[in-house]
């Protein structure tokens, strides 16, 4: 077996172990955090009636038995039914993934479209007012709390100017702009700052001086030689960012009433809807693990110095 395939198998096995760990943690934390039936039943439900409902949901059994039932169900693709709606928990989680993915990809696209040119500009115009302005703006972008930025954008562009929708998805692609910017702002600022420092480092390298000495134009040196090498670490960052954006858009989804998996998870956690929380967390964890896996693979391909074994 080649190094590549043994690496793939080893990473797949590691990923499964991680997901098993995640399942134990999420199961344990949820079941220790409160009684879902008491939260859902009307206030005047008697103790006997509550116990009867718990029994029907299997919540009266010992925790290890419940975990085993859960895990064996997961292996069959059955995450159970929502305690709140009776619907298939995995289906509820999966149907939210596209909305979250749209938002995460928009945020990533926004962050790259802005960060790449401004990162390069700051590096090229190092120590000038342009550099200081761009990096100052990046620092502000990185420091702004998401909930504050989100509300601010809504007030300016939806309430005062009336050019973009405040919340929801009903306005099609226009609905994506404000939440996309809000979610992508931190990544945009960080990517710009990282690109600037990488580019500055590369621009000092000997092969750049060689290229200049050969009489190449500044433009060719920058884009063909310096930028390409400076951007390598960004590939890893972009992959990890995408995972983080998919998993970490809870606040943005809440502010903009975006129907993603983050909001589903939060609602399910508040309602102690164990099956839905477990399904949502495992879906997000799986996406994260897969993206990480692909990033590692791509990095190994892109950089021959990385040894797969």
């Amino acid at each position: 077996m080649s190094n590549f395939w043994s690496y793939v198998i080893r990473r797949a096995w590691q990923s499964l172990t991680i997901l098993l760990g995640v399942s134990i943690v999420v199961f344990g934390l949820m079941h220790l955090s409160g009684d879902p039936i008491r939260l859902l039943a009307p206030i005047d439900t008697t103790a006997e009636e509550l116990e009867a409902i718990r029994k029907l949901h299997g919540l009266d059994r010992p925790l290890p038995v419940q975990y085993w039932n859960f895990l064996s169900g997961v292996l069959r693709g059955d995450f159970g039914k929502s305690l709140r709606s009776g619907e298939n928990a995995l289906h509820l989680a999966l149907e939210r993934v596209p909305a979250t993915a749209r938002l995460a990809l928009t945020a990533l696209a926004f962050s790259l479209i802005v960060a790449l040119p401004f990162g390069v500009l700051a590096a090229v115009k190092r120590n000038t007012w342009i550099d200081r302005t761009v990096m100052g703006a990046a620092l502000i972008g990185q420091s702004m709390p998401v909930f504050w930025l989100g509300i601010l954008l809504i007030l300016v562009f939806a309430v005062n100017l009336g050019v973009l929708p405040a919340t929801g998805t009903r306005a099609g692609w226009r609905s994506l702009i404000l939440p996309g910017i809000t979610l992508g702002m931190f990544n945009m600022a960080r990517t710009a700052r990282l690109l600037r420092s990488e580019l500055l480092e590369v621009l000092q390298a000997e092969y750049i001086m060689t290229a200049r000495a050969k009489g190449m134009s500044a433009r060719v040196v920058l884009w063909r030689h310096a930028f390409r090498n400076a951007v390598i670490p960004l590939v890893t960052l972009i992959g990890l960012d995408l995972g983080a954006l998919l998993a970490g858009s809870v606040i943005t989804e809440t502010i903009f009433a975006w129907p993603g998996i983050g909001r589903l998870s939060v609602n399910a956690i508040y309602g102690r809807d164990y099956p839905v929380v477990q399904a949502a967390v495992l879906v997000v964890a799986s996406i994260y693990v897969i993206i990480n896996f692909l990033v590692d693979l791509s990095y190994a391909f892109l950089n021959p110095r990385v040894n797969l074994s």
């Binding site: 309430v159 405040a166 009433a257």
Partner: peptide, 13 residues
């Protein structure tokens, strides 16, 4: 719209 500030903004908008 779960967030109260966003809910009011949705009405104002």
């Amino acid at each position: 719209v779960p967030d109260i500030a966003s809910r009011v903004a949705t009405l104002l908008a």
